[in-house]
Design a protein around this nucleic acid. Structure first.
Lengths: 141, 141
DNA sequence: GTCGACCGTGAACCACGGTGCAGGGTCAAG
DNA sequence: CTTGACCCTGCACCGTGGTTCACGGTCGAC
């Protein structure tokens, strides 16, 4: 038990401050504070001096936010999902399922749209010459 | 030739003003003026009283802008494409092909991402219960 | 010629997703 | 105990994509 590796199993291992969390999750410190203002991310506590303290899990949370954004979700939507996942006991499963289903349909539509444009653009690249009346517009509209 | 339908073949048929164009293309009048400021849309001319006059083709143009936006293009990108398609003679084909190829790769990536999320969410809806440690986050991150 | 619907301008304002800055406190190494 | 790196707060600012507003001119029907 004198094993230094025992350290690794201690849950309160290393409360991160803003800098380390920012570096670990790939965002700016100012962005972390912005997310906090937006209700997306809450520090686990504060140090005596008022420094924000985050658990190592926060890295995952921030990465999730970024990833979801890349996928086209707004911060508002991300906040709602996170709020649901934060509620420990009563998970409003019907609500989640409904929201997720809506999002599914939306995603299907967007995927289909993008595939259509992809096909049109690919054809354009293959066939080369640009014709009168612009096939790009025809392809997309 | 006294046929009233002959009207329909007259090219300068009906120069649209902002209101009709807005209604026909499904945007607000203020949006048309905004697009003009952004260099996306230029009226063909002005009436004596200073009213903007658009050709019926403008409806297609505005719809194209909206559609491209839905598909994730920024107004800046749309403007560039339109500028190219507006240049009558020398079409910088290599540039277009390159840009379009880049956009293709981007689209492929986004489609793949969205399909991944789609699959994850679909599974979630099917299997129902939300588990500890949140599978939504696992699916997306 | 007068009415209402429509159009013009410039400027302010909005939501979103952040970024930057001033002025000051904290913390740990030396 | 000082020094330098880091952190705090609040507020202003940015680009993108528009919308709203005040104030005024235009147009066609009556």
């Amino acid at each position: 038990m004198a094993d230094p590796a025992a350290q690794r199993t201690a849950p309160p291992a290393s409360p991160l401050t803003t800098g380390p969390l920012a570096r670990a999750s790939g965002v700016a410190v100012s962005t972390l504070r912005f997310y906090e203002r937006q209700g997306l991310l809450e520090p686990d506590g504060r140090s005596d001096g008022g420094y924000r303290q985050y658990s190592p899990d926060s890295v995952r949370r921030v990465r999730f936010i970024r990833r979801a954004q890349e996928l086209g979700f707004t911060l508002r939507e991300v906040r709602e999902v996170l709020a649901l996942s934060d509620e420990p006991g009563r998970i409003v499963l019907d609500d989640v399922a409904e929201q997720v289903s809506d999002k599914l349909a939306e995603l299907d539509q967007r995927i289909a749209d993008l595939r259509g444009v992809r096909a049109a653009l690919a054809l354009l690249v293959e066939t080369g010459p640009v014709h009168p009346t612009c096939p790009v517009i025809d392809a997309i509209v």
